[in-house]
Each structure stands twice: as C-alpha cells, then as structure tokens.
Amino acid sequence: MWLVRRQLDTRFERLDPDDDPDRDDRLIRELYQEFGGPLLRQVRQTTGNDLQWAEDVVQETLLRAWRNAAKLTWERGLLWAWLLTVSRRIVIDGRRRRSVRPREVEPPEADSIAVPDAADRTLAAIVVADALRGLSPDHREVIEQTYLRDRTVSEAAEILGIPPGTVKSRLYYAMRALRGVLKERGVAS
C-alpha cells in the first residue's frame, strides 16, 4: 500500500495551485478514490470493526483534507501521514464522547503486547511485536502507554508520572529506534 501511495503523489502535487473552478469537486473525488479504501481499512482496525463509525471517520477526515487543501503540503507520503493522524484524532475524540464513564487507570500489565494468534498471524505483526520487545523498557513503555492504548501525551505522562515533555522526547527516540529495527528487518521502508 505504501508503495502505491508513493506513486500517486505526483498526481496530487499537480492538483494544488491552479484556480480551476472544478478543482474542489475533482479534489474531493480524487481523495475518495485514492485514499478512501486504504484509509477505511486503517480506521476499521481502530473502531473495533465498527464499519459505520469507520466510514463516518473516513468521510470527516477527507472533508478536513479538502477544507485544508490550500495549506496542506501534497508531498510524497506527507498527505497519507496527515490523513492517518487526523483520522486517529477523530476516532479518539469519538471514543471519548461515546464513553459514559470517566476513564480509569488500568492496572499495569506485565506485557500488553500480545503475541498474535496463530490464526491471524501476519508477518508484519510478528516482526513488529518482536521489534517492540527488543526496544529498551523506557521506549517500549512510552509507545505502549500512548499509541497502543489510545492515550494522548499528557494522559500517558500522568500515568507514567513523568513530564509531558519527557514523554514526547522519549517517544521520539523510541520511534526512531523502532523504525530503525523495522527497516533493518525489511518491513519499513
């Protein structure tokens, strides 16, 4: 999928600057055509396969992209990264609105990175789980307490008892380390 994205980028670069009156129509149609499917697959994983919710999130994400078209950088990879980021934000906000009870601090678990079930083992899942285990405890913990548990930086900071700035820096070095390992093992480019 990532490779496909890279090939598409040149087309989006060309969509940007002109004053073509049909540009808006064309842009939103193109956004749907090119990103609707892949984005839906990504979003469904975070909505617990709630298809209706996932479709709403995709629609809202692409609408925001369209509204921000003038100031977004339609560069290789960046647009996809932007769409992923925005859609995650929408899912997290939606989950907050849906939850009636205030969130509780979950008991710490020895290892919340599950070994994938034999039935749905994908090579990527195995390699990523293994790469996470190979990180330093601090790095692994900060990825777990933010992304893997759908928490923002300040929420994770509170749980970990460290300043938000430390969470962000730790996350940065953790992501660089993770990417390095995944690249070495051929699952990241």
């Binding site: 990532w2 599950a114 079930d117 749905d120 899942a125 789980a129 992501m175 990417r179």
Partner: peptide
C-alpha cells in the same frame, strides 16, 4: 520534521498490526 513525519508515516499502520492482535486477545 517534514522528513521525519514522512519517515514515521508508516509506523502507525505497522503498530496497528500488533494492536489489533492484542485487542482480539483482550
């Protein structure tokens, strides 16, 4: 940061592989 955002771009999708596996388990 633009370069790093691009480089980090595929990590959420890869982490989701682990996450969805762990959500199914728990």
């Amino acid at each position: 940061c633009k370069i790093e955002l691009d480089e980090f771009g595929e990590l959420p999708g890869l982490l989701d592989e682990v996450k969805s596996a762990s959500q199914r388990v728990r």
